[in-house]
């Protein structure tokens, strides 16, 4: 298999983590919720997946546990921001700090302090017949199942967002919650639903990170990917398709980082690591007014 093919395969693999969480975050953001806590949600997901996979021996149980765990944390976020009118950004930051403590505590309780890495069940590569045999793009079709799922979800999410009643409600709540209230929409319930969906998808992303992309949990393993997801959403102009583009870009720069590290050890890897952040900075500056960013973003709606 050619080097390029392997590279493309790893791009898709690395993009999947961003994409899964990004698809969840898009719905949250469109409903007017800025959720910095995605980092913490993903971290929780990553741990719970390993715990589930380790105790039950099935990666799918791990995935389920991961989704439940992050949704529980997302429910805390929803409770504080919606019921108690807490500032979304600060609540998100609190969630991240909380998750970083909680995961360590839980991790050491389950696996002990001496860090023996046991073998766990992980997502295995699933080769699609015929397609995986293609030259160059072949490696793209030899990925674990969640990768395909993530990319299949993109058009589905795009459709739901733009063509369905649910999508209309979510977009409207983010733009003008008061108007939604006057036509009898349950604004808080829609926002809570969007937050929970963000939690679900972040959990999925975390699970994929620890049991798909890698095969174990390390403390603080999300390492800023949650923040990158937020950047991907802004970069992708708050649409699922855009998020996919951003996720692929971030995935590519991450994959490039590893490859160039091997190919040209002279240039410090940190410079490549910086690249996606710098690109995002520029992208955000260029967008400005044409953005799909909801008007009522990040503010709490008080009736």
């Amino acid at each position: 298999m050619s080097a390029l093919s392997v590279f493309l395969g790893s791009v898709v693999m690395m993009a999947t983590t961003y994409l899964l969480a990004g698809l969840g975050a898009v719905f949250g953001e469109r409903a007017g919720i800025v959720n910095i806590g995605i980092e913490g949600l993903m971290l929780t997901g990553a741990l719970m997946a390993v715990v589930g996979s380790y105790t039950s021996g099935s990666v799918w149980v791990g995935l389920l546990l991961a989704m439940l765990g992050s949704m529980l944390l997302a429910a805390v976020f929803a409770c504080f921001t919606i019921c108690l009118h807490a500032n979304q950004t600060v609540t998100g930051v609190a969630l991240n700090i909380l998750a970083s403590g909680l995961t360590v505590l839980l991790f050491r309780t389950v696996f002990g302090l001496n860090g023996m890495i046991p073998q766990i069940d992980t997502f295995e590569a699933l080769e699609i017949p015929v397609l995986s045999g293609l030259p160059v793009v072949g490696a793209i079709f030899g990925q674990p199942l969640p990768v395909y799922l993530a990319f299949v979800l993109v058009p589905v999410c795009q459709f739901v967002m733009n063509r369905t009643n649910l999508g209309l409600k979510i977009r409207s709540v983010g733009n003008h919650p008061k108007a939604c209230d006057t036509v009898g929409l349950p604004v808080y319930r829609i926002q809570a639903g969007a937050i929970l969906f963000t939690g679900l998808m972040s959990g999925f992303a975390g699970a994929f990170l620890s049991t798909g992309q890698l095969s174990f949990f390390t403390e603080g393993m999300v390492a800023g990917r949650g923040y990158m997801v937020l950047a991907a959403v802004a970069f992708g102009n708050y649409s699922p398709l855009g998020v996919m583009a951003a996720a692929l870009l971030f995935g590519a720069s991450e994959a490039l980082q590893y490859r160039l590290q091997v190919a040209y050890p002279v240039i410090p890897t940190e410079l490549y690591a910086m690249l996606p952040y710098i690109i995002t900075l520029f992208a955000i500056c260029i967008y400005r007014r044409k953005s799909n960013r909801p008007v009522y973003s990040g503010r709490n709606y008080l009736r």
């Binding site: 209309l168 409207s172 036509v183 009898g184 929409l185």
Partner: peptide
């Protein structure tokens, strides 16, 4: 109580 960023018909059928 209209959402300026959305189309007329979207506003009409909302909810």
């Amino acid at each position: 109580m209209l959402i300026p960023e959305q189309t007329v018909i979207e506003n009409v059928i909302l909810g």
